[in-house]
């Protein structure tokens, strides 16, 4: 029913993960070069595969990115009016080097963004996030909503699996291939939505009965992992990012687009 706890890099504070994610995403976006984005993407893929997160993050990122890339290819790859270096043409379609470069740059930049934040959401433990919000006295309801966004996909798939088991136990034979899967999904959609609505209602009641959502401060049993080294890293990361942005976009002696 509920999610596997993520394969988090042990002992990392959610803020450390978040600051690393922000630094990577913002610098790659600012530099805006397909080569840099591609290098960062490769590095991320290697890192994630090494600690076992790749199995979760990369397919999820592909689901988001592949349609996006296709649409980029259609809009900019085939019809980029500003393009001058024509590689191939057929009727209204003009494949230009500039168009392809623009599509690649935008596609890869967005991919870095998506991979980084998916990796963050897959590696942060909801319990850590909840504890962190309690620590900073933020409303626990906000924490719960944030955590629910992290846990909803596994919770839904758990419930869907149990409905499928109940239906199979009463004779539903799911055929092989996409057709069979589609038929099973059609059979499960309505019960799934109804079960989730029902569950949300009864969960809300029992959370309330356990004192959740009361006025007054909330404490946390869980101690969020942290260390002086992580704190220093976070400050350095934020400071370095600020300096980089000031130099990159600010007027002066550092030429933006040097890598471009």
């Amino acid at each position: 029913m509920l999610p596997d706890s993520p394969a988090a890099p042990g002992g990392l504070n959610p803020l450390t993960l978040l600051s690393a994610a922000v630094v990577i995403a913002v610098t790659t976006t600012a530099i805006n070069s397909w080569a840099v984005s591609a290098a960062v993407l490769l590095l991320l893929a290697a890192l994630l595969s090494l600690n076992g997160l790749g199995r979760k993050v990369l397919p999820a990122a592909a689901v988001i990115m592949v349609p996006f890339w296709l649409s980029l290819l259609l809009t900019h790859g085939l019809f980029f009016h500003e393009g001058r270096t024509i590689l191939w043409t057929a009727g209204p379609v003009r494949v230009t080097a500039e168009g392809l470069e623009f599509a690649a740059g935008m596609g890869l930049r967005t991919a870095v963004f998506v991979v980084v934040f998916l990796a963050f959401s897959f590696s942060v433990r909801p319990a850590d996030l909840m504890a962190l919000l309690s620590k900073y006295r933020l409303p626990p309801q906000l924490g719960f909503v944030l955590c629910s966004t992290l846990t909803i996909a596994p919770a839904v798939s758990g419930r869907a699996r149990r409905i499928a088991q109940a239906q199979q136990s009463r004779g539903l034979v799911t055929g092989p291939g996409a057709g069979g899967r589609l038929r099973a999904v059609r059979q499960q959609a309505v019960p799934l939505v109804m079960a989730l609505l029902h569950e949300a209602g009864s969960r809300a009641d029992s959370l309330e009965a356990r004192g959740f959502g009361g006025r007054g401060p909330r404490t946390s049993y869980r101690e969020v992992p942290d260390s002086p080294a992580q704190r220093i890293f976070r400050w350095l990361a934020v400071a370095a990012l600020a300096v980089f942005l000031a130099l990159w976009f600010g007027p002066g002696w550092f030429t933006p687009g040097g890598v471009r």
Partner: peptide
């Protein structure tokens, strides 16, 4: 149905 869902 009473699990908090946020406890690890």
């Amino acid at each position: 149905a009473q699990l908090s869902t946020v406890a690890a």
